[in-house]
Simulated scan of single mutants.
Amino acid sequence: MTKLYFVRHAHSTYTPDELNRPLSERGFSDATKVTNLLKPEGIDLVVSSPYKRAFQTVEGIAEYIHRKVEIIDDFKERTLTTVPAEDFTLAITKVWEDYHFSWEGGESNIVAQKRGVDATFDVLERFKDKNVVIGTHGNIMVLIMNFFNKQYDFTFWQNLDMPDIYKLTFEGKVLRNVERLWERL
């Protein structure tokens, strides 16, 4: 069995620079909790979105296991639009209501989901029978989970914590179990 620990990043300080937005003070505190929660899980390696807030959320567990974080671009957050949405709630609701719809310059759910699932399958193939932490983002994480089980939907995304951790257990490419770890705190 391969265990993938999807970690939605901790709270970040808002800046318009998506790539370099850092964790907030609360985010750093929660990242320490993420590390402590993952320590007993026997983690073999850590991969992350290139976004700073995702990387910073999982770098503590990488340091604990004496490994570098491997950046995997396709675990970055979905692109909703090229310019900030005037009404974020409307914009995000629309793409979840119609999986094929995208705002100008943005990714539809289908396109973003394919990117995330392809990255997931690559990790499953390269790291078979390993315990892998994946530092990522809420929307892309839920789109990946939704591919394997439709119960992980827009409502599920709306109820995620920041950070949040879901352990997905795979046999080959078949999802066998999902367990939320963040609720242990």
Rank of each mutant, 00 (worst) to 15 (best):
G27P: 04
A119E: 02
A91I: 02
Q56I: 05
A54G: 13
I43N: 01
F121N: 12
G135N: 03
R115T: 08
S48Y: 03
Y64K: 00
H66R: 10
A54T: 09
T136L: 08
G27T: 08
G135K: 08
G27I: 01
N20T: 04
V83G: 02
P22I: 14
I92S: 01
L45D: 05
S102C: 13
V117E: 01
T120R: 12
I43H: 11
A85Q: 03
D118C: 09
F88T: 05
L19D: 12
P50Y: 14
Y99F: 13
D87Q: 03
D44I: 10
A91S: 10
G42W: 00
E97W: 00
A91C: 10
T136Q: 07
L38D: 02
Y64E: 08
L124G: 09
T15L: 15
Y64G: 03
D30Y: 14
E25N: 08
I71A: 00
I71F: 09
T93Q: 12
N36I: 00
E107S: 02
D44M: 13
N36F: 02
E41H: 07
Y99P: 11
Y99E: 15
D122G: 15
F75E: 04
V46Y: 09
S29V: 13
V83S: 13
K130C: 09
L38I: 03
L23V: 13
K128C: 07
T15G: 13
S29L: 14
D87W: 07
F127P: 14
Y99Q: 10
K33Y: 11
E125N: 12
H137T: 00
Y51Q: 14
T120S: 10
E41Y: 00
R126K: 15
N131E: 10
N109A: 14
F55H: 11
Q113D: 10
D98C: 14
K68G: 06
I61E: 01
I61H: 01
V95C: 01
K94Q: 15
K128I: 15
D129K: 11
S29W: 02
E70K: 11
S29F: 09
I43R: 07
D74G: 07
W96D: 13
Y64I: 05
G106Y: 02
P40Y: 14
T89K: 06
I43P: 04
V111E: 05
V133R: 01
K94R: 15
I110Y: 12
T93C: 05
T82G: 14
D17T: 06
V58W: 00
K114C: 01
T93R: 12
Y14V: 10
T79G: 00
L45P: 03
K128W: 12
I71T: 11
K33M: 15
H100L: 09
S24V: 04
I43W: 07
L23T: 13
I61F: 02
R126I: 05
L124Y: 02
Q56M: 07
T120E: 12
E104K: 06
V111Q: 08
K39D: 04
S24A: 11
Q113T: 15
T32S: 11
L37N: 04
K68I: 00
K76N: 11
F55Q: 08
F121K: 06
L90M: 08
T120K: 12
I65F: 00
R78G: 03
L19K: 14
S48A: 09
